[in-house]
């Protein structure tokens, strides 16, 4: 599973993140290899989401470095990180509630569109061609994720599982190199989880997208992930293949609890 020849895409080194006196992440380092599915697991409040927030520039760690594609990344704002090809979904759905499904997916193309204000103003020539071209691309993604039937529904009224899928579609529309998924299967029933897992694998295999995901369902993680990082109270407990992690004593203790 772990292929030594694979290139490292992203590496986080000795990240420390504090909010006032609260330590959210303490000295965490791991890497993400190109083309793999990397899972981050841990109990609630372990700092998983904070870790994703650090990766996409929403939080700025007090200490630590982020290396992306062999270069040290300077401190960036989230919109700059998005330009480097990192997309994400959210734990609590963060769709644009005032828009329809197709419009939401189109927002993912925002960065690829670049025709200037004056073409936009007249919606003519290059601007409309661009719009049509990206619309085509979005329709393909909608097709891929099997959400054609809700294309024109306002997202606010969709059931939870579909909203999650639209969010994935939006992230895919960005054509990211690294896709961060924050609990993509939270609150889903078994069937929906199966669908979602299938999509994640398809994305990874068909588009070659590198994926880092946070998930609580261990069965899913063990099936999907190539390698797993375990966090607990902001510290790193283990890093390795699902098998290795599963048999790691510290991890078992953290999940089952030990007598102190």
């Amino acid at each position: 599973m772990v292929n030594e020849q694979k290139k490292v895409m992203m590496e986080v080194k000795n990240i420390n993140l504090r909010f006032g006196g609260v330590i959210a992440i303490q000295d965490v380092s791991f890497d993400i290899q190109e083309g793999e599915i990397r899972a981050i697991i841990g109990p609630n409040g372990a700092g998983k989401s904070s870790m994703l927030n650090v990766i996409n520039g929403f939080y700025h760690p007090q200490e630590g470095e982020i290396w992306f594609r062999g270069e040290k990344r300077p401190s960036m704002e989230p919109y700059e990180v998005a330009k480097t090809g990192i997309a994400r979904t959210f734990q609590n759905i963060a769709l644009f509630k005032g828009m329809t499904t197709i419009e939401n997916v189109m927002t993912g193309r925002q960065l690829q569109m670049n025709k200037n204000f004056f073409w936009q103003l007249f919606r003519y020539g290059p601007a409309i061609e661009e719009e049509v071209e990206h619309r085509k691309r979005c329709e393909e993604i909608i097709d891929f994720l099997e959400i054609n039937h809700i294309r024109k529904s306002p997202v606010g009224s969709l059931p939870y599982g579909l909203q999650k899928r639209v969010e994935l579609a939006r992230a895919l529309a960005m054509e990211p190199e690294l896709l961060l998924l924050d609990e993509p299967m939270a609150g889903m029933n078994v069937e929906e989880k199966q669908d979602m897992s299938r999509f994640i694998i398809d994305v990874n295999e068909e588009f070659g997208t590198t994926i880092a995901l946070i998930e609580h369902d261990m069965a899913v993680v063990m099936d999907l992930a190539d390698r797993v990082v375990v966090l607990d109270y902001g510290k790193m407990l283990a890093d390795g293949t699902p098998k290795e992690v599963q048999s790691n004593q510290a991890v078992i203790d953290a999940y089952l609890g030990v007598a102190h």
Partner: peptide, 29 residues
């Protein structure tokens, strides 16, 4: 109506509906 249906209009609506998500997709506030 042209501007609103295009890229710029969408970036406004993104900021309106969920500014944090908009920023993470690459809209500069």
């Amino acid at each position: 109506s042209n501007v609103i249906r295009g890229r710029i209009g969408r970036s406004w609506m993104m900021i309106r509906d969920m500014d944090i998500a908009a920023e993470l997709i690459g809209v500069r506030p």
